[in-house]
Design a protein around this nucleic acid. Structure first.
Lengths: 114, 114
DNA sequence: GTCACCTGTAAGAATTTACTGACACATCAA
DNA sequence: TTGATGTGTCAGTAAATTCTTACAGGTGAC
């Protein structure tokens, strides 16, 4: 289980952004009760499959869930998702520490297009 | 210090949304090092005062920082901000529990204007 | 073939967030 | 009075998110 490492700032921001959405919190909650495949998950949560797909991508990019293909008995390729065993403690001190390794939107250096 | 209560879902979502931003993480980090007033904070972070004002509102609405007016020796009314002693542990189980009290974007019932 | 499942993705609309610039007002000091 | 501080807020724009609809491809069963 994670939680005792220094905790990278960008990584933290990625995780927080991924969790800052009601649908995604519910996805975590459902997957915490057991692994599941995309179409079924969409039915359980009552959201469209493309939408769920997008949310899962965001969660997976943050390392909060993991997916893998599994071929069912009747030959269908299904994508199962499961939560990873992430864990971090949030408080001012932890954030202050993580912020030291934050590369995004620095004083000088936002993406600055043109 | 907070952290052992059941943790309300909407409250959690509010906090996560508030923290899911590099500027706001930095604000927390700076305030963790000591209370400060708005204009000075804006200079430290190198962002505009109106922008900082907006971020502070978001953080205060989530209960992560608190502000109060303080009159300086030379009579200026200045708004000082300080971090509250928030603390929560994030992991799949905690999220699953909090999600039970999530009122937002239910299967039926998004804000649905007109 | 057609139907019922599964997967993935692209296009565009709708909404929210983030941000700048300009304004208004107050106090103290020169 | 003017200048340097501090406060707050509004209007408008730029950009990022969120979400729907529609499409394409796969398998096995009828």
């Amino acid at each position: 289980m994670a939680g005792r490492e220094p905790l990278d700032g960008d990584q933290l921001l990625l995780a927080l952004s991924a969790l800052a959405n009601p649908h995604r919190l519910r996805i975590i909650a459902v997957l915490a009760g057991g692994t599941n495949y995309v179409s079924q998950l969409a039915r359980d949560l009552q959201i469209s499959r493309p939408l769920l797909h997008m949310h899962l991508q965001r969660l997976e990019a943050a390392g909060l869930v993991e997916g893998h293909i599994e071929v069912s008995d009747d030959g269908k390729a299904m994508r199962y998702y499961a939560v990873t065993d992430f864990a971090f403690g949030l408080n001012a001190a932890a954030i202050a520490e993580a912020t030291q390794t934050l590369t995004q939107s620095e004083p000088t250096g936002r993406t600055k297009g043109k």
